[in-house]
Amino acid sequence: MNTTWSRFNITSITLGFAFLYLPIVLLVVFSFNESKLVTVWGGFSTKWYVSLFHNQGLMDAAWVTIRVGLISATVATVLGTMGALALTRYTRFRGRVLFSGMIFAPLVMPDVITGLSLLLLFVAIGMDRGMTTVILAHITFTMCFVAVVVQSRLVSFDRSLEEAAMDLGAPPVKTFFQITLPVILPAIVSGWMLAFTLSLDDLVIASFASGPGATTLPMKIYSQVRLGVTPEINAACTLLIAIVTIGVIIASVANKRREVQRQLDERAAQRG
């Protein structure tokens, strides 16, 4: 195998990464711009971060986003897990094939369609649009992602663990909470995180489902950008990027640690 880096490879990788990260780097750099003009460098400053925290509109939107994210991710995780359990466990109910196909549909459904149909539903049943409707909309579309993540874990779940628990005297409900749930918990947690991030950065569905007084951060940013990009927005986005990056790093470090610990344990076990 040819392991030396050809000029072509280097060029394509550089271009690829530049394409991915240059816009982000620009955004971060300009968030520290002294000048009010976004594209003209006027010296280093953190004043936009200060003014960001005094921008009541942005802060309100951030708070709405966080609340929507926490509530919808939690409810979606409960419902998605239940759906995944039903799909993997009760393999004989009528319409299972249809149901399991339908749970994947929202993953590929264009957001515009999901948003529009939810809007029509809320209008039809006469529901006032606001934070509640945004939460409901987010539960609806993130639930499917949770279900898919949890389902893939359940497929490889060893059913004899549950049989062993019942054999030892634990009724089904106790078996679920003491055995099944703890074992699939990592998948449920990643399902929750996925749902939370999806809710955090959703613009389209939230725009359809929300009403006055319930503006999420992406909606706020988008509407401000239409009036012209301000360095304040750059600062807000930089903060979001920082939060997401830190989250990803913590998660992968924890994962890595667990993996290493596991290998050490297994080696210790081999030695007896």
Binding site: L161, A164, L168, G169, P171, Q178
Partner: peptide, 28 residues
């Protein structure tokens, strides 16, 4: 149901509870 039968089984795959220590497995 299995949880009311005075019968215990040792499984072909052992089916040990992975999230519990040896002690807690036995005490379950």
């Amino acid at each position: 149901p299995p949880y009311r039968r005075p019968v215990n089984m040792m499984f072909q795959s052992y089916a040990l509870f992975p999230h519990m220590t040896v002690e807690n497995n036995i005490a379950f």
